[in-house]
Design a protein around this nucleic acid. Structure first.
Lengths: 257, 257
DNA sequence: CGTTTAATTGAAAGCAGTCAAACTATGTGG
DNA sequence: CCACATAGTTTGACTGCTTTCAATTAAACG
């Protein structure tokens, strides 16, 4: 596999997962003016309250969304991996309602907001793909609410591991049964509403029970093994397949024109 | 104030809160074929896994989104009040990823999916309004994640009370300082990841401290009083004002045509 | 009224948090 | 190559918020 020439290739691939893009749409996407930028671990891309200025996509590395309480405790609200768009949220809103921060050193493809707007509003299929992407993020958020509200630490940790694995698999980023989880136990705690101490104990328990294997941050487990049961994990909410209904919507409109 | 003639009047008002709709857009919305339907408390409007068939808006009454764990415990992921759209989520996805259930007896304006699609795809301003609505729901979901992950029972309960109040205020549905909270303590527990027993104790504590007043389900508290502090509540995430940026996006596109 | 659903209360148990310290890996400078 | 500093992981003892279980009271309903 040759190295991607255009960082936006990844974006094309991502949006293609939701809905089929025609040749013209793909070209339009790849022709976007885009600037490559590297951010260090824990650097901020977006800050709550700021007016949005641009749209960014993760080319390599990992990132997360986050909110803080008044007392300064942090809650991670979503995780993002290469190919994910980080700013579609803010394209239409007047200010950011959360923070976006890097998990690892990451390369970002930054597209000026006006160019994005133009693209999304003139190419209906891309507009649909973006909407679908937003809807799927909302679906994931609902699953996280379920995870935080109704599952204990053991199931929560297991669920995050399953979700991350499934998403890496979908992007072709995992090697077999395992993957490098790019998070400290502190960060895992912030994502799961737990303390790092309890994350540690829980991971250790899962390992002791033979449900996962760990080597530093490298985690592995059988994708359809016991962990999934512990996590009560069903990948349906990730909407990994292509959305036929959206295509139908488009078809209906095109037919009318 | 005369009774609304068209149930979709409410929808117009709701979308107008996000972005200005022209006369033609308003007329198009009101001209949608729509059927009024009444559902009883706890009736299902949408079931997880089902393919979506229609779009519904709450005309009167309250509803919520919900997911279940394998063991059958329930987590409410969002609350909805008159004027809220309940199915924009599913317009573009192949199946429902959560359940939608009534909190009280409710009147729904049901619009066939095809008609919605047609409207949204042919009237860009309405399409934008719908997208904004979805983005705001996602923002609220992130705040709920923060609430569940990082606040204790006291703050969580206070936060829900503040949010509900602020949203009712925004829709002009509250009378002064108070409102009827249309939920049992069991349902409050399901929304906040707590047990009904603990909800009871917490409400009682808040009442004992003079932060709220209760009379059956009727709750009142000063909108800018101590409760807001306890809840760490900042209404920013609700994006209650009109989104100027979306209008700008539109303006740019129109200018180009 | 009797029945059902919701709210309230008490006692005991448990999951997760807090605090503190030790340990490990990694990187830096001498 | 070693001493030291730093960040992250691991462990133990103790505390505490929330749940569980059970029972009682209150309100809503036909």
């Amino acid at each position: 596999m040759p190295q991607e020439r255009n960082p936006l290739d990844l974006m094309v691939r991502k949006l293609q997962q939701h809905i089929e893009l025609g040749e013209a749409d793909q070209q339009a996407l790849l022709a976007l003016p885009c600037q490559l930028r590297v951010l260090e671990p824990s650097a901020y891309l977006v800050r709550e309250g700021e007016p949005p200025r641009q749209c960014a996509m993760l080319v390599s590395g990992y990132a997360f969304r986050q909110k803080l309480t008044r007392e300064g405790t942090r809650q991670i609200t979503s995780l993002h991996l290469p190919g994910d768009a980080l700013d579609l949220q803010h394209l239409l809103l007047d200010f950011a309602d959360h923070n976006v921060q890097m998990l690892t050193r990451a390369e970002l493809a930054i597209v000026p907001r006006a160019a994005w707007r133009e693209l999304v509003m003139t190419r209906p299929v891309i507009g649909l793909a973006v909407q679908i992407d937003n809807l799927i993020e909302a679906s994931v958020a609902r699953e996280w609410i379920l995870n935080l509200g109704r599952r204990n630490a053991r199931a929560r940790v297991a669920h995050l591991l399953c979700e991350f694995g499934a998403r890496l698999d979908a992007q072709g980023l995992s090697d077999g049964d395992g993957y490098e989880l790019p998070m400290t136990q502190e960060q895992l705690g912030d994502a799961l509403g737990l303390t790092s101490v309890h994350i540690n104990r829980t991971l250790r328990t899962l390992e002791g029970e033979g449900l996962i294997t760990r080597n530093r941050r490298y985690i592995s487990f059988a994708r359809d093994g016991g962990l999934r049961g512990v996590a009560d994990f069903n990948p349906r909410y990730l909407h990994l397949g292509r959305q036929e209904e959206a295509g139908a919507a488009l078809g209906a409109t095109l037919a009318r024109d």
